[in-house]
């Protein structure tokens, strides 16, 4: 899958919106107050759900790391993956019109 996901613990409020959207990959473990990626997405359906969760995250705490297969791809170059702050640099993020159905 072209994305890996990471929770920024200091920013996560633990509201559970991400685990509602992507229950196969994200959860708030019992007794904890922040979300955890318990499994990176293994199918395109799971990845789409995680991307949507990242876009929804009101605190911008679920990061989608882009593995863009360019020389910046850590698997190929040893470099660092690029970080896409959730909901801020993605076109369908909160504040865009994509998730709002009315006018």
């Amino acid at each position: 899958m072209p994305h890996r996901f990471e929770v920024v613990e200091d920013d996560c409020t633990g509201c559970g919106l991400c685990s509602e959207r992507a229950p196969e990959n994200l959860e708030i473990p019992a007794g904890f107050s922040i979300a955890e990626v318990f499994k990176q997405p293994e199918t395109s359906t799971e990845e789409e759900a995680c991307l949507e969760a990242s876009e929804y995250c009101p605190a911008g705490a679920l990061l989608a790391h882009t593995k863009d297969l360019s020389p910046a791809d850590p698997a190929q170059s040893g470099g660092q993956a690029s970080f896409v702050p959730a909901g801020e640099s993605t076109p369908a993020g909160i504040g865009s019109e994509d998730w709002r159905n009315d006018t």
Binding site: T13, G14, G16, S33, P58
Partner: peptide
């Protein structure tokens, strides 16, 4: 504190989602 914090997190998220829109 654990249970109320869990609720408060949703309350903050509601404000963030709605106000960003």
């Amino acid at each position: 504190l654990q249970l109320t914090s869990q609720d408060e997190a949703r309350h903050v998220s509601y404000g963030l989602i709605y106000m960003k829109d």
